[in-house]
Design a protein around this nucleic acid. Structure first.
Length: 547
RNA sequence: GCCCCCGUAGCUCAGCUGGAUAGAGCGGCGGCCUUCUAAGCCGCGGGUCGCAGGUUCGAGUCCUGCCGGGGGCACCA
């Protein structure tokens, strides 16, 4: 159930008015826009409805805009001061102070649910992310995956979907074997195996495991995995990332027939898999791949793809209508394969999404830090958190669009941690807390209760701007959710903090006279505080009461 | 060679799926603390939105081609 939303109501009115003008027969091809004009003087909002309807109605856009304006006036009544047709056919809306005050009342009543529940068709969604194998500590890049996946899950849930977060990992197989052999080699002071793990943490593990030199590699591998997984979980916990479930690939190989065997049988039965050169191939070329892929090696061992297909089915069978699986940009070919497999099994490939996360480049001054787990050259997520803190790391990781590479200059982040934008946003929140504290709980409660007494005097331009920025929150959430773009919330949080700070500068709150003005401003501040806290919480960043 | 992502201010990046005179942070320069938190605020400077075509009332945004950067093209995951 979606919370009341002033801007949404306004948008409905515009849509309705446009429908009335077009006679209901030929509505606009796409919904008309309703946005805040960048330039001052062009009203609170403007719509392009006139221009959109012009071709179908065969009348000049400005004339249609005029008619939409009239329809809107009858629908909005005192909420609307006036409309103005401008430029090629924009209709600019000048909303009354009354509209702004009511908007605050509405948003205030929604409390911390303001902006929530907007999803039009809620789905059961599984977000699977990080999923790093326990062969080493989480690195900085994992920090991006963790921040992205976690924020996306939070945003989708807030938007109204039923969301679960899951971490898929492989704790068996060749890489794990190699891990055990590497630890063993370090314990003995012997040469590492071919392609072994070189990181210093391997030597540390060897030291932590008693009698490592005498143990066999398989046993060592199991113990190393336990230790590494414990540390991965501790890092995630510290980072504020929660998973409902850690899913072991091993489960898919257990039983007879195993989940993997059943998946392969199903593919063969459907004619989508065939044997050639001793291996079992998935005919992904049917679904747009440029070559077929091996499911089962000629030595009889299944590939990771076989397990992943079984996992796909497992998730579908658990009732998830959509699977979102953020992966590294280097996995982009993998997306085609996975979707092909899903199609072959009768699934809708559109419901399998693999957002590609571009790489994180850690830069030390001008020098790039290479990150290879095997060669052991990396900055771990823990080190990054030690360096710049959880909130700053998450905020930074979520500041850029996920499909862009992220340059993180450690020197800069370290040196300027106090100037990171995250502090700016948190500071605005803390400042409101302090202000409300000064006003006193009774005063704050009275201000919110006295909605009907707010209507005194003319609103300041900064007040109006803040109301509109707040009113945009539900649509920002919707955009972030639908486009899988948490970074929009980051940008929004920053903007809201800026607009609030301008209001704070220009409008005295506590002690403003008459009391009605103070009441309204307190209410506005409370709403802002809720909204900043909501936005930060969607990002997994804390909203301190005091700084 | 084929596929994916990206070229916007000195640097790092937003830009609301096509709207009006393109924005923010950082960096530079100059100002502002007897008044609700100066982790702040104000001002100045800074742009052929990679290039060239196309689509239309209108393009940073969509299409095509080129140039440049990153990534991928395993019986590794």
């Amino acid at each position: 159930m979606s919370a009341p939303d002033p801007l949404g109501e306004l948008r409905d009115a515009v849509l309705d008015a446009a429908g009335a003008v077009s006679g209901g027969e030929h509505g606009p091809p796409v919904p008309p826009t309703l946005e805040q004009p960048k330039r001052a003087g062009l009203g609170d909002y403007s719509t392009n409805a006139g221009m959109l309807l012009a071709p179908a109605l065969g009348a000049p856009p400005r004339e249609i805009a005029e008619r939409v304006g009239h329809e809107l006036a009858t629908r909005l009544g005192p909420a609307l001061d006036r409309t103005e047709v401008a430029g090629p056919g924009f209709l600019n809306l000048f909303l009354s102070d009354r509209w702004h005050r009511r908007a605050v009342a509405t948003m205030l009543a929604a409390s911390d649910r303001f902006g929530a529940g907007g999803a039009e068709s809620p789905e059961r969604i599984l977000v699977e992310f990080v999923s790093a194998n326990p062969t080493g500590p989480l690195v900085a890049a994992s920090g991006r995956h963790a921040a992205y996946g976690d924020a996306l899950a939070r945003i989708l849930a807030f938007h109204g979907h039923a969301v679960m977060s899951e971490y898929y990992f492989n704790d068996a197989g060749s890489q794990i074997r190699l891990l055990g052999e590497s630890v063993h080699a370090r314990a003995l002071g012997a040469q590492l195996p071919q392609g072994g793990y070189e990181g210093g943490y391997i030597t540390e593990l060897a030291g932590e495991i008693p009698d490592a030199a005498d143990a066999d590699a398989a046993d060592l591998a199991a113990r190393a995995v336990d230790l590494l997984f414990a540390s991965i979980k501790a890092t995630l916990d510290r980072y504020g990332v929660r998973f409902e479930r850690f899913f072991s690939e091993r489960v898919l190989h257990e039983g007879s027939p195993s989940a993997v065997e059943r998946a392969l049988a199903q593919l063969i039965e459907g004619g989508h898999a065939y044997r050639s050169e001793g291996a079992l191939w998935l005919r992904t070329t049917t679904f747009g791949d440029d070559k077929d892929r091996v499911l089962e090696r000629s030595n009889g061992e299944p590939t990771y793809l076989a397990a992943d297909v079984a996992y796909l089915l497992n998730k579908r069978d658990r009732g998830f209508e959509r699977q979102i699986n953020p992966v590294g940009a280097d996995h982009h070919g993998y997306a085609v394969r996975l979707k092909a497999a899903f199609s072959a099994l009768g699934g809708d490939p559109e419901t399998i999404e693999l957002p590609l996360l571009q790489f994180v480049h850690l830069i030390e001054g001008t020098q790039k830090a290479a990150m290879s787990k095997r060669r052991g050259e990396f900055v771990t997520l823990d080190e990054l958190l030690d360096e710049i803190g959880v909130d700053a790391t998450r905020f930074f990781m979520l500041q850029r669009s996920h499909d862009r590479t992220l340059d993180l200059d450690l020197e800069l982040a370290r040196r300027e941690s106090a100037e990171n934008p995250v502090y700016y946003v948190q500071y605005a929140h803390a400042r409101i807390a302090s202000m409300l504290d000064r006003a006193g709980a009774d005063r704050v409660a009275a201000a919110q209760a006295g909605v009907d007494d707010w209507g005194v005097g003319e609103l300041h331009v900064a007040e109006r701007a803040l109301v509109k920025t707040l009113a945009a929150f539900p649509e920002e959430v919707a955009e972030a959710a639908e486009r899988r773009a948490p970074h929009r919330i980051t940008t929004y949080a920053l903007e809201l903090a800026q607009v609030f700070t301008a209001f704070y500068r220009d409008c005295r709150v506590v002690g403003a006279t008459p009391v009605a003005v103070e009441s309204f401003r307190i209410a506005l501040s409370v709403t802002t505080k809720h909204t900043i806290a909501s936005a930060l919480s969607l990002l997994g960043v804390s909203a301190p009461e005091m700084m």
